[in-house]
Amino acid sequence: MNTEQKLIDLINDFDTAMLVTRGEREDLEARPMAIAKIEDDGQIWFVTDRHSGKVSELKADANVVLAMQSSNKFVSLTGVAAIIDDRAQLDELWNEAWKVWFPDGKSSESITLVRVRPTHGQYWDNSGLSGIKYLIKAGNAYLHGDRPEVDEKINASITM
């Protein structure tokens, strides 16, 4: 498996991502977002309120970072976001749990989609057998005063 496919496979393990945008004062703003869909090429879809601060931030600067983390898997993506008004796509993505934020359901006029096209990604996967092998390498490196070698099964940086 190539590193880009490994990254996309890891992304599919997450249902939430921290979306980082640039705020009005050039500060960075982060907020958790439920992932609506992950495309085969790594594009990620979110649903949000068109009147939210993140939408105005994305209109001013579409460059974003997505960060995802579990106890032993970590993904960071840099990409470009777009606000998409597509009712057919919304119908396909709709999740009834989102009525918490949109009481009128998918017919709410305030719903819009955010699509992030990743341009660069990094992952660290310390799960399963790869994680155990890494722990052994790290232990040996520690005993010898060295740094452990890390292979692409555990860590890689990818331009997409």
Results as ranks from 00 to 15, higher is better:
residue 114 V to S: 03
residue 155 N to W: 08
residue 113 L to H: 00
residue 15 D to Y: 09
residue 59 K to W: 11
residue 11 I to K: 00
residue 24 E to M: 12
residue 81 A to V: 02
residue 139 G to N: 13
residue 151 D to E: 12
residue 3 T to P: 04
residue 38 I to E: 01
residue 105 G to F: 05
residue 107 S to C: 12
residue 84 I to T: 14
residue 133 K to M: 13
residue 87 R to H: 12
residue 146 D to T: 04
residue 134 Y to C: 03
residue 142 Y to W: 14
residue 116 V to W: 00
residue 30 A to H: 14
residue 20 V to D: 01
residue 71 S to C: 09
residue 117 R to K: 13
residue 109 E to P: 11
residue 27 D to N: 13
residue 76 S to W: 02
residue 78 T to V: 08
residue 149 E to T: 10
residue 42 G to Q: 01
residue 46 F to Y: 11
residue 95 N to F: 13
residue 101 W to T: 05
residue 50 R to W: 08
residue 115 R to P: 01
residue 16 T to L: 12
residue 159 T to E: 11
residue 92 E to D: 15
residue 15 D to E: 13
residue 45 W to F: 08
residue 75 V to W: 02
residue 21 T to P: 03
residue 58 L to C: 04
residue 32 P to Q: 15
residue 64 V to I: 13
residue 4 E to M: 10
residue 122 Q to R: 12
residue 10 L to C: 05
residue 146 D to L: 06
residue 109 E to G: 14
residue 54 K to P: 02
residue 158 I to K: 02
residue 19 L to S: 03
residue 43 Q to M: 09
residue 103 P to F: 06
residue 110 S to Q: 13
residue 20 V to S: 03
residue 160 M to C: 07
residue 136 I to D: 03
residue 101 W to I: 05
residue 62 A to M: 01
residue 156 A to L: 08
residue 37 K to C: 08
residue 149 E to M: 10
residue 131 G to A: 09
residue 12 N to L: 06
residue 104 D to E: 13
residue 60 A to M: 09
residue 160 M to G: 08
residue 90 L to P: 03
residue 108 S to P: 05
residue 48 T to W: 00
residue 110 S to G: 12
residue 134 Y to L: 10
residue 53 G to K: 05
residue 36 A to D: 04
residue 36 A to Q: 02
residue 86 D to A: 04
residue 56 S to A: 15
residue 113 L to N: 00
residue 158 I to H: 01
residue 48 T to M: 02
residue 94 W to V: 04
residue 140 N to K: 15
residue 111 I to Y: 00
residue 46 F to W: 01
residue 48 T to Q: 01
residue 63 N to G: 12
residue 76 S to E: 06
residue 85 D to H: 12
residue 64 V to M: 03
residue 137 K to H: 07
residue 92 E to L: 14
residue 40 D to S: 15
residue 153 K to H: 11
residue 27 D to P: 04
residue 71 S to F: 11
residue 109 E to R: 15
residue 79 G to I: 00
residue 15 D to P: 06
residue 4 E to S: 10
residue 38 I to T: 10
residue 71 S to E: 14
residue 65 V to A: 02
residue 115 R to A: 08
residue 23 G to P: 00
residue 105 G to R: 08
residue 18 M to D: 03
residue 97 A to T: 15
residue 85 D to R: 12
residue 126 N to Y: 13
residue 45 W to M: 01
residue 74 F to S: 09
residue 116 V to F: 03
residue 95 N to Q: 15
residue 135 L to H: 07
residue 93 L to H: 05
residue 58 L to F: 07
residue 81 A to W: 00
residue 153 K to S: 12
residue 116 V to N: 02
residue 63 N to W: 08
residue 139 G to Q: 11
residue 63 N to A: 12
residue 28 L to I: 06
residue 112 T to H: 03
residue 15 D to H: 14
residue 100 V to D: 09
residue 134 Y to P: 00
residue 141 A to G: 15
residue 23 G to C: 05
residue 114 V to T: 02
residue 105 G to W: 08
residue 43 Q to Y: 09
residue 62 A to S: 05
residue 148 P to I: 05
residue 46 F to N: 00
residue 106 K to W: 02
residue 100 V to A: 12
residue 35 I to A: 02
residue 23 G to Y: 04
residue 31 R to F: 06
residue 77 L to K: 00
residue 125 D to T: 05
residue 103 P to T: 07
residue 121 G to E: 03
residue 108 S to Q: 08
residue 1 M to F: 08
